[in-house]
Simulated assay, not measured.
Amino acid sequence: MKRVYDMVIVGGGPAGLTAAIYAGRANLDVLVIEKREIGSLLIAHSIDNYPGFPEGISGRELYELKKKQALKYGVEIVEGTFLELDIFSDPKVVKTDVENYHTHTVILASGWPKNNEKKIEGEAEFVGRGVSYCATCDGAFTRNLTVGLFGQGDEVAEEALFLTRYSKEILVFAPEGELKCHEELKDALAKHDNVRIVANSKLKKIEGSNYVEKVTVKENGSERVYDLDYTFLYLGTKSSEELYAGVANLDSNGYLITGEDMKTQVEGIYAAGDIRSKLVRQVTTAVADGTVASMEATKYILKKKKEAK
């Protein structure tokens, strides 16, 4: 049986950790997904206008205090890159490069939205022409083609297994010494002769004419070129529009539009902090957003539990 959390929070900044503290204190089963050493709070040298610290406090100190308080209430905190949110599953599924997490509610608190600039050379140019972020969406287009998947975790393994229905050859490029996923997924992949794991590999460049034709990969310290017809990226390079368009309405700058209750247009999903469309972005306003989102999500969870009895 898959573990199902009451609440998964994407982002370990002021909004996310505040939401976690409130939900943990309410005895909910809470998971926070954060990216290591990433966030505007961590790089703040000194915060002089946060109430309760007349001498000021560094962003890192404030982060460590908030994290300690969340852990005190039993909150689980893991590192990972958020890839996708499956809003059609029940419970919902938060997909990362480490693992897929099942949950009844989600609070999106991942900070400033990503714009449409892509991190990989050639990525933006070939989106929709051999670059995809979803094998289950585009797998049918890869019939008898050679494809590559780039990333880590259960999501990559599951997507590779799906592609075995269509693709001629499937190369899974793992950035570390092995593909990190559950053992049953590894065993399932091993049963397919057309699946190959390429370890210690990092995507550097995507090239082609009208469609993707080849990629350059840094593999064990040296660059190597692979001929590929299709690439599936699980590297956290999606823009906010690509990540959240099905979850919430976005303003012209990519921020998620919510009401004062932090609710998005999808039941059970909330947004808080700098990712939300609003007038002021400060640590204090992020904390306020996290408080409201957590309290609203908690009410939603308790109502669902009562209805289920």
Rank of each mutant, 00 (worst) to 15 (best):
E125I: 08
S110A: 14
A109C: 08
E117A: 12
K67I: 00
D138S: 07
D48F: 02
G221M: 03
Y234L: 03
E79Q: 14
Q282Y: 05
S40H: 14
T285F: 01
Y230K: 02
D289R: 07
V266C: 02
A271N: 11
V147H: 11
K92D: 09
N27I: 01
Y101Q: 06
H102L: 07
K118E: 06
S167A: 15
A44L: 04
I257N: 04
V94G: 03
I197A: 02
G290Q: 05
I120Y: 03
K191T: 11
M295A: 07
T105P: 03
I206G: 01
Q265I: 15
G208M: 02
N100R: 10
E64T: 09
G16M: 10
I21Y: 02
I87K: 07
W112E: 15
E155F: 00
E223S: 04
E79G: 08
I120T: 15
S89F: 06
S201P: 06
G24W: 12
S252H: 14
V30F: 05
G208Y: 10
S46I: 13
A288Q: 10
K278D: 00
E178N: 11
I257A: 06
G139I: 10
M1N: 07
H182F: 13
T291W: 03
E241I: 03
N200Q: 06
Y300S: 01
S294K: 04
E183G: 02
E155L: 09
V280F: 14
L171H: 15
G273R: 01
A293E: 06
S209N: 15
K305W: 06
D97Y: 11
A308K: 11
D251Q: 09
G208W: 12
Y101G: 07
E184W: 07
R25I: 11
A26F: 13
A160V: 04
